[in-house]
């Protein structure tokens, strides 16, 4: 009987892990991609983060906080393995958008490309809180806890992130218009 109970615990842990992977690996990959700027590295980071998550899955008590928990693991993994690595951001032309091209108009792909390029140029201290807000759906308080800064600092950073992003995009659009005229 003890064996049956043990098997049941193991399979419920595996089911929980499967659900986390299937439900959140895409979100985590997007976060990792914008964190490191490389698709293969993002894939490795997500995989390592999930393998670490598996080993400490018993510490996850609240399923509602699973995404934040995984992002914490991912950020630690990124810091641990790649903090000394200079990010090699891809050119906008090299960013893989094949899946999206099927559903978006050429105009929107161009606009998305400009935004992606601007995000790559955005300083990490502005990019990360903005990513957590836009991609992760986290509140300023949650971001503050994760980044270990004050909520007021988070508000300042997301405010400036948007300002800088819009400023860069306005410059890019003007430059694109000049190229069209010349």
């Amino acid at each position: 009987m003890a064996t049956d109970g043990s098997k049941s615990v193991v399979s419920s842990k595996q089911r929980q892990f499967d659900a986390l992977v299937r439900g959140l690996s895409g979100d985590l990959y997007r976060y990792a991609y914008w964190l490191c700027g490389e698709d293969a590295l993002a894939h490795d980071l997500v995989q390592e983060a999930f393998l670490r998550a598996w080993r400490s899955l018993d510490s996850l008590r609240d399923t509602g906080s699973a995404k934040a928990w995984l992002i914490t693991i991912l950020r630690r993994e990124h810091a641990r393995l790649y903090e000394r690595k200079t990010p090699q951001f891809a050119d906008v032309d090299e960013i893989e958008v094949a899946d999206e091209r099927e559903t978006h108009t050429p105009e929107s792909v161009g606009e998305d490309g400009l935004i992606r390029a601007a995000m790559q140029r955005l300083d990490a201290k502005y990019r990360e809180p903005l990513l957590m807000q836009v991609l992760g759906g986290f509140s300023c308080e949650e971001i503050a806890r994760e980044l270990n800064i004050t909520p007021a600092a988070v508000m300042t950073q997301v405010f400036r992130a948007r300002q800088k992003l819009k400023g860069m995009l306005a410059g890019d659009v003007k430059e694109a218009q000049l190229h069209e005229l010349s």
């Binding site: 690996s25 895409g26 997007r30 914008w34 958008v97 899946d99 999206e100 992606r116 992003l165």
Partner: peptide, 18 residues
């Protein structure tokens, strides 16, 4: 537009490979 631009598609079979 920002949300759409950031939504990079994950690699196929990402969950399966993990």
């Amino acid at each position: 537009t920002l949300g759409r631009a950031l939504a990079i598609p994950p690699p196929p079979n990402l969950a399966e490979s993990i």
